[in-house]
Nucleic acid binder design. Structure first.
Lengths: 236, 236
DNA sequence: GAGCAACTTGGACATGCGTACAAACAAGTG
DNA sequence: CACTTGTTTGTACGCATGTCCAAGTTGCTC
């Protein structure tokens, strides 16, 4: 029949991504992918010699796509904190509604074979780097609590974004962007120092201490004690 | 040999949990579990007729254990916000350092067969209920931003806690409790109204609006405008 | 020390897996 | 029309899987 090679390749990748996401990688058979894509298993083997090759090709595409999306999105504004929100939007939009492969890439990362992980780690690192730079930009603007562990913050943000995929169902009454914004807000309210409203550095410092209690439990107490003395005149 | 049945059962469950976590459920074979537990596959079949039976038994135990742990932990204090932090600690401690089965239960939930999910949903719901009640307690104390979608908040908290499992390595220089506290703080700083320090209800309201931008983009703007008028005297 | 229940053993089974490959086929080129 | 190239087909191989079971072994009880 030799219909259309490129079209069939797309069908294979789409079917594979959907099944990998739904059932996991190990539980998805080449035969099942072929059935889903309306062809015989041989046609898959013809394009991708092994199951791992298919997996790598799939994920490489996925991470490239989302990287492009995020890069384009954050170019739309100069506000470093707004960038964080927009990046979160794209990340979650792709994760929930877009390419299933990205879902697999984020959630099954730890279970890929070492060889597969190595083949993809450069791409993934480049994506994480974009997030790091967005977060660093936000931190440099002075609008984050100072002294944060930014890698931890990136992981926190990633975790928040990725975790939605564990419960989100397409029939949810909220739109994906709504959830993304709400999560970004929960995230932002946590990390932002709200400088415009409460620029008191002592306050930010006390919050930082609360964030790393093992470093100095006493800083917050000192702040509280300080406040006791000047009780009654601290807010607008 | 008939060494010790109970001991062997433990060995099976431990080996199964470790392998399920490491390689995923589908990729873990009964033979591999047997090898890990130093016995023959038949001994596993003798106790658990099918792989699914083993899975269910494993997870039931795991969720019971963490539920007990959380319940015991939150009984240690009356402070509703402190309870949130302590619950997070137990959750993450079990997830990262404790029973591998809990890890599987949280992260592979969506990929269990429908039958297996049904068999476990009651247990899991009971655990989620504890979290909901902790969060509701915190909300009732008035120390959270009012008007939050509490289910969304629970999912947010769960997601944050669970996501650590996707990157945490045992050789991390931070202790699990340190990470748990830092995450709880990032979480708490986001949701808490910091009433003791900034009890201004207008401020909390504006933050709420920022949290649900699609409901009323203008509330925050109104707050900002309001503040413009009284510029210069709003903090301690 | 005989009997018994609990447990383990080793081997077998049907099934489904990833992969391989020769043959058939389709479309384009000269 | 013949020839080539890219693609699909159908079938096959060897292997690993979940599950099963008859026979063997152990420690306990009277």
């Amino acid at each position: 029949m030799n219909k259309n090679s490129e079209e069939n390749t797309e069908a294979i990748l789409a079917a594979a991504a959907a099944l990998f996401r739904q059932k996991g990688i190990a539980a998805t058979t080449i035969r099942a992918i072929a059935r889903e894509a309306d062809m015989l298993p041989g046609s898959i083997t013809y394009r991708y010699a092994t199951k791992d090759d298919l997996l790598v090709a799939l994920m490489r595409r996925a991470v490239e796509k989302v990287r492009d999306g995020v890069e384009r999105m954050i170019a739309e504004t100069d506000d470093p904190v707004e960038r964080l929100r927009l990046a979160m939007r794209v990340h979650m939009r792709v994760l929930l509604d877009g390419d299933d492969a990205f879902h697999v890439l984020m959630l099954d990362w730890g279970r890929l074979s070492e060889k597969t992980r190595d083949a993809l780690s450069k791409e993934r690192a480049r994506y994480e780097q974009i997030w790091d730079s967005v977060i660093q930009g936000a931190a440099a603007s002075g609008r984050l609590v100072p002294g944060l562990d930014l890698t931890l913050l990136r992981r926190f943000a990633f975790g928040v974004g990725n975790s939605v995929a564990l419960w989100y169902q397409p029939d949810d009454p909220r739109s994906i962007d709504e959830i993304a914004d709400a999560y970004a807000a929960l995230l932002g309210l946590g990390a932002l120092a709200h400088d415009a409203r409460h620029p008191d550095p002592t306050y930010a410092y006390a919050r930082l201490s609360a964030l790393y209690p093992w470093e100095s439990e006493r800083k917050l107490a000192r702040f509280e004690a300080e406040k006791e003395k000047t009780k009654g005149d601290q807010d607008a």
